[in-house]
Lab assay of single mutants.
Amino acid sequence: FDIYVVTADYLPLGAEQDAITLREGQYVEVLDAAHPLRWLVRTKPTKSSPSRQGWVSPAYLDRRL
């Protein structure tokens, strides 16, 4: 999967189903980028939180090589 970094805090609107909150600087794996406005991502697990999966706007993501 492609690795992206979150460029700004992402707080989903209440109406968005299956969306997750992301923090600036967080790394995520993009699982599904087929839709231009919503990408399915999975967060990297940390010592304090397990990995999470949900939909985010790709405008908040920047690809890492």
Rank of each mutant, 00 (worst) to 15 (best):
F1T: 08
F1A: 08
D2R: 10
I3F: 08
I3C: 12
I3H: 05
I3Q: 06
Y4W: 13
Y4S: 01
T7R: 10
T7Y: 03
A8Y: 07
A8H: 12
D9L: 05
D9W: 03
D9Y: 04
D9H: 06
P12F: 07
L13C: 12
L13M: 13
L13N: 14
G14T: 12
G14K: 11
G14V: 12
G14H: 13
A15T: 15
E16M: 09
E16R: 05
E16Q: 09
Q17A: 13
Q17Y: 11
D18F: 09
A19I: 06
A19L: 07
A19T: 10
I20S: 02
T21I: 13
L22V: 05
L22F: 04
R23G: 04
R23V: 10
R23A: 08
R23D: 06
E24K: 15
E24M: 15
E24A: 15
G25C: 04
G25P: 00
G25W: 02
Y27L: 15
Y27T: 09
Y27Q: 09
Y27R: 06
V28S: 00
V28H: 01
V28N: 00
E29K: 05
V30R: 01
V30I: 09
V30G: 00
D32E: 07
D32A: 05
D32T: 04
A33C: 15
A34Y: 08
A34S: 15
A34Q: 13
A34K: 13
H35D: 15
P36R: 06
P36W: 04
P36L: 05
L37V: 06
L37Q: 10
W39F: 03
W39A: 00
W39P: 00
W39E: 00
L40C: 05
V41Q: 00
V41E: 01
V41D: 00
V41N: 00
R42G: 02
T43S: 06
T43L: 07
T43V: 08
K44H: 12
K44T: 12
K44M: 15
P45W: 07
T46M: 07
K47M: 13
S48N: 14
S49W: 09
S49I: 10
S49C: 13
S49L: 11
P50S: 07
R52W: 12
Q53F: 08
Q53M: 14
G54A: 05
G54N: 02
W55A: 01
V56S: 01
V56E: 00
V56M: 05
S57W: 03
S57R: 04
S57T: 04
Y60Q: 03
L61I: 04
L61V: 03
L61G: 00
D62L: 13
D62C: 13
D62P: 02
D62H: 11
R63M: 11
R63G: 09
R64E: 11
R64H: 14
